[in-house]
Design a protein around this nucleic acid. Structure first.
Lengths: 356, 356
DNA sequence: TTGTACGCGTTATCAG
DNA sequence: CTGATAACGCGTACAA
């Protein structure tokens, strides 16, 4: 068994020795937070270079500076909804010298608690909880508990794409979810549709509630009574949507348009419709939500609601960073809550219903 | 200005005091690596519970135990190719008590160097470099440099979806990239296609080279000479593919089938074909590569090559963890290289060419 | 402008 | 089985 070169990271002390200065001086040029003479600075820089020296973040965190770490908690990495938000978070984090620890919970509720512990253990300076969530009392309590727990450790909590508590005590960045649902339903109604199927995500999820509420409100504003038979709530998934659409078709509900809870669901709806030989939009109009890249590749391209996912992620980081600066801007309003706008993207999946 | 409760993480010392034991004992029950009497253990556990105590990972890493951190470096978080690999890495990492630090380089070469520094600074125990890469001498040198640098710090380097160095010194997990390209091209040839356009990723990228090589080999085995006019190499992007396909159509090259370098490119090809009123597969057959979810939502569903992305990610973690165990299995073969198989997924985008 | 020395929270070694 | 105590690498008062 040959002896490999032992793992040997160079330390500040080694750099100091090489540059003929003290460790304190090395620390100072590394952080640039105290004056150091140009000559000394240069020698230290050279020594760092030659040794391939890298500051030890663990030691730094222990010594009291932050960890420059953001913990990002989401359901599912692959889903483009989360993916784009994650990208926004990444970008803004990188722009502020932070690294991102990404946790995918796969929807398990316990996953968030684990993530909180992880954040505490790593001394993260921020936790971002992404995506819709149940909005009952238990949720309120859980979020408050997380909030308090993290605060005890000097860690910020930011909610992204889900509502804050009813007291609004924890920062959150949301989008005009209900308004988007209203817009897209209204769009269908103006085209003359009267029997519009809603088909989407799990009961109790904030995302679902907002979208169904928008749908209902649009109906009411057109003097139509929402018909529960036309609201199918199950999952946000392609397969579930396909099957459910098939069932709905078999039930002969005389539907002329479908509002799919998100673009993935819309893909399932497309599949079901084609399976039954129905044409989009001639026989049935379809709209989606989110405007992920898939929407433009569906045939016909999907009319949907654009959600500013990347900005959502970036804003979440900004919210969390706010106040980190030593000088809290006295003129800064309280921006612990942000809400970004959405807009309708008209493509080719909607037409007026065929005359009966 | 009201005084908030100061950030106060509880430490081992506090737990020790509360349980009436020494910090050493607390450490021992926390880690379970040394014998502790049941009674003591219970008291310590209780104290930890009451204080909401969480081990400090920074201190642990400093004290010499690993950081239980994996640094994952990829081009682009949103791309499903990377997304699924990332998911596999996540899963396997979590299964082994590791957290993942995700870095998206957006293709900037300097990004990898930064990621290496980050890994060193955080004392990560593994770095996974994901995705195709240039394969010239500079690449060899860069990888060797990274490898040596990380090894100096006791950090493993694993390549995922890209070739190792010519000496095979750094662990890598790949897939049968060339073979997949051969299979799918062969599939078209057997259906009678003779003029097949290849359209895909950047020059010099390992992924591109492998796929073009497979394409060429299939042609040769069918006694056809590869025609450079039918090989369009640019980017792995939907828009580039759409534009390029349009140009190709205008050039009237008598193409009856298209091998898109990946499924995203195939989406661009679909768009171009439809834009010109051409039907798939009646007028032109199309195949893709990767088998990401999009493939099944294209119309018609895309025939493509399935790449085991999640397993790729999982295997990468296993490779990196191998040998971490205190007892190196003397019977374990050297598995520092892995290569996973791919298979053809036939859907509805291929038919025989129409008789001329 | 620079150096000295202590503390951050854990782990591991060495006594007991 | 349990308790002191010396590292681990860095930041920062404090002193010079």
């Amino acid at each position: 068994m040959t002896t490999r070169s032992a793992p040997s990271a160079s330390t500040m002390r080694e750099v100091a020795a090489r540059a003929g200065v003290s460790v304190a001086t090395v620390s100072r040029v590394a952080n640039g937070n105290y004056p150091v003479s140009a000559a000394t600075k240069e020698r230290v820089r050279a020594a760092m270079q030659e040794l391939g020296y890298v500051l030890d973040d663990n030691a730094r965190a222990l010594a009291g500076t932050g960890s420059r770490l953001i913990v990002l908690v989401l359901n599912e990495l692959v889903d483009p909804f989360y993916g784009y938000i994650a990208r926004g978070v990444q970008q803004e984090a990188a722009a502020n010298g932070r690294a991102c620890l990404v946790i995918a919970t796969s929807g398990q509720p316990g996953g968030e608690d684990e993530a909180i512990d992880l954040a505490i253990g790593r001394r993260a300076d921020m936790v971002i909880l992404v995506g819709g969530s149940r909005v009952d009392d238990a949720y309120q309590r859980t979020i408050r508990r997380h909030h308090r727990r993290l605060a005890d450790h000097g860690i910020r909590l930011v909610l992204c794409g889900r509502p804050t508590t009813d007291r609004g005590e924890v920062p959150s960045v949301q989008y005009e979810n209900e308004a988007g649902a209203f817009m897209v339903t209204d769009h269908l109604l103006r085209r003359g549709h009267r029997r519009i199927l809603y088909l989407g995500g799990p009961t109790g999820l904030s995302t679902t509630e907002a979208r169904v509420n928008g749908y209902r409100r649009a109906l009411r504003e057109h003097d139509l009574a929402p018909d529960d038979a036309l609201i199918r709530i199950g999952q946000f998934g392609r397969e579930w949507s396909r099957r459910t659409m098939l069932e709905t078709l078999d039930a002969e509900l005389e539907v002329t348009a479908v509002f799919a809870g998100n673009d993935i669901c819309a893909a399932g709806v497309y599949a079901a419709l084609k399976q039954r030989g129905l044409r989009i939009p001639d026989d049935v109009s379809v709209v989606g939500y989110d405007d992920v890249p898939l929407a433009v590749d569906l045939d016909p391209p999907l009319t949907t609601v654009n959600v500013p996912l990347e900005p959502l992620g970036r804003e979440a980081v900004r919210l969390g960073l706010m106040g980190d600066g030593a000088s809290a801007d006295p003129f800064a309003r309280d921006r612990s809550q942000a809400r970004l706008g959405v807009y309708l993207v008209e493509r080719d999946s909607v037409s007026s219903p065929a005359p009966a």
